[in-house]
Design a protein around this nucleic acid. Structure first.
Lengths: 343, 343
DNA sequence: GACTGGCACCTGAGAACGACGAGTGCCGAA
DNA sequence: TTCGGCACTCGTCGTTCTCAGGTGCCAGTC
């Protein structure tokens, strides 16, 4: 008995099950794959694969379906790369190319990814903390209010209105503005916070309250966790493909999708590269029958955030991974090229 | 036969059906309502109500369920106002009160409305075109780029980056900025656009290209339809209550929810006040078994946008309408009080 | 020793069926 | 007009039966 053939059988089972959504038996397997042996031999291989936990029979007299472990093996060792078609590439490129701002890029990414994979797509907004300061503006408003605008290297704009105890002197504001800009532009957000903290002491004591107030707000904005938590979701109608049993297989997924914390953790696992979490590997009971494919996007040096898909475990992993990778690449390209200072 | 009693019967049928989700027969109706007559009499009334199209029997020997027309009658003439409990009011108030910016207000509104009604909640972001200019900032960036920031009376901040053909003179930018601010602050967005157009000619011809470029971008931002289209959705897990048949009753709803155009049209019908669309009244086949309850929010004088719920036709209309109205009131209050210039 | 064909066995899906019960429509009487 | 009574209708539920697809095992073959 050859180990190789047993793995071929596993691959064939995964492929067939993904295609048909039905347990695959030894006979029907041979109808779709030329393995050069008889059904009985396949049955032997299947029995061993079942012993090893790669596949399982839903009941005595049905075919086999892959287990989480089986999919894992398939993804890690058996899947062949399935490149996107030229049409798909062009579709991504032209659709994302039409975006007018960061918000738009994210919305379009979600849409295109959901359509490509026919799954639920999730895209995290570009992280604030992982980007650097492009510009900061300090604008006095009416009363004793000041508007702060922070523009980051990823093109995001955050604004805050600060209520001061007194209307600040115009010269002070101008001075403060230029010093803030000088200290922070080009810095990563955490570093910028440090620089700002140091800066406070360089001001005359009578100006400290105003300066402190403004700097504090900026620092909060830099480390604003809520901003990092924003996520766009699309393609929820594709949940239809998850299964017919709403309460058991779809409702928990919808609940998980509404729970940003869960999504962020799932996406967070993909900081270093393409990540595939299969079934219970996701760590959430509600997602026990779903897989999450995620990958970071951004420039080569710096990831901005993460995007991916949520689908039933029985998905076409090679295609899904190819789509996620492609969208990630284009989004990263657009965000870094388009909204980056020209040379 | 009294007309009054027949309407009482219709009301009882709607209330019972909403409560039990099951067709209601003449006998079980009397178990829950004291109508002072016998089942046979009720049957007579039911027969007439069925002739008139207010109720229908799913099959010969089942009870009756209300038709869209029956719900319509119920909402228009039979429903008694069902005020929110004090606890519910306080929950809305405290939860929405914790919001830190407009984005946050909208997110929290969706959440609280979905929880209160146990339906899908949709909240349109405050409209740009319906609000006025609070402040505009013009910030030169590196190269020949300029950042424009627009703050509206509803607290929204829009930003655009303009690519100019040449780096503008610093004095010109300052002049332009103060003139833009002078011309637009306090104006409604459409009027602000007009004022800006007039302003172009007051600049020296050599400055026209820069000015025109910037003003054009601002005008586009003012009339940006895409901004008006943003909608937050929540409580999709409540779709579970819509019915067990996913493909027929839930998938089309999910699809409609992803189609912003549909949602906007539904919300748009509520410009003048509380609007209830029942079943096919929504005008979308996919929403044939759902009802949309929507109402505008904003100040007394000026609606900012619309919010509401999407649920199966068999919902508790009085409670739903009360919840939608309450959330609308609080959201409107917060947005107009909190982010409006102090006196 | 690995593979194959044959065979007995298992089991879920689906059709057929009957009993049951909730509900109706109608009629004659109060 | 209302009411009680009665015959009738149909969908639901549980039971039974058949069927098809699938397995495991074993003896035989290359």
């Amino acid at each position: 008995m050859s180990d190789d053939r047993r793995l071929d059988v596993l691959r064939a089972i995964v492929e067939d099950y993904v295609a048909t959504q039905e347990p695959v038996g030894s006979r029907s397997l041979l109808e779709r794959h030329q393995l050069g042996v008889s059904p009985a031999t396949i049955r032997g291989d299947m029995a061993i694969l079942e012993d090893e936990g790669y596949i399982i029979a839903p009941h005595t007299s049905a075919g086999r379906i892959p287990t989480d472990k089986g999919y894992r093996m398939f993804v890690d060792r058996l899947a062949k790369v399935k490149p996107l078609s030229g049409a798909e590439r062009r579709a991504i490129e032209t659709f994302l190319g039409g975006a007018v701002d960061v918000e738009d890029v994210v919305q379009r990414s979600v849409k295109v990814l959901a359509q490509l994979t026919r799954q639920v797509a999730i895209v995290q907004y570009p992280s604030l903390t992982r980007s650097s300061v492009r510009h900061i503006e300090v604008v006095p408003l009416e009363s004793a209010r000041v508007l702060l605008v922070v523009i980051t290297s990823s093109g995001r704009v955050e604004q805050r209105i600060v209520e001061l105890t007194e209307t600040p002197d115009e010269k002070l504001v101008l001075d403060l503005r230029s010093r803030i800009v000088g200290a922070t532009v080009g810095e990563r957000l955490p570093e910028a916070s440090l620089k700002l903290a140091d800066m406070i002491e360089t001001f005359a004591p009578e100006h400290r309250p105003v300066v402190t107030s403004i700097v504090t707000t900026l620092t909060q904005t830099f480390s604003n966790e809520r901003s990092d938590e924003r996520i766009a979701i699309g393609g929820t109608a594709n949940l239809a493909r998850f299964g017919a049993d709403f309460d058991r297989s779809i409702k928990p997924v919808l609940e998980a999708l509404e729970e940003q914390v869960v999504l962020l953790k799932l996406l967070g696992e993909a900081t270093t590269g393409m990540s595939v979490s299969i079934g219970r590997e996701t760590g959430y009971e509600g997602l026990a029958t779903t897989s999450v494919v995620a990958t970071p996007y951004g420039s080569d040096e710096q990831a901005l955030a993460t995007l991916g898909t949520v689908g039933p475990t029985r998905i076409d992993y090679p295609s899904t991974m190819a789509s996620v990778a492609a969208v990630s690449r284009y989004v990263g390209g657009i965000l870094t090229e388009r909204w980056t200072p020209d040379p």
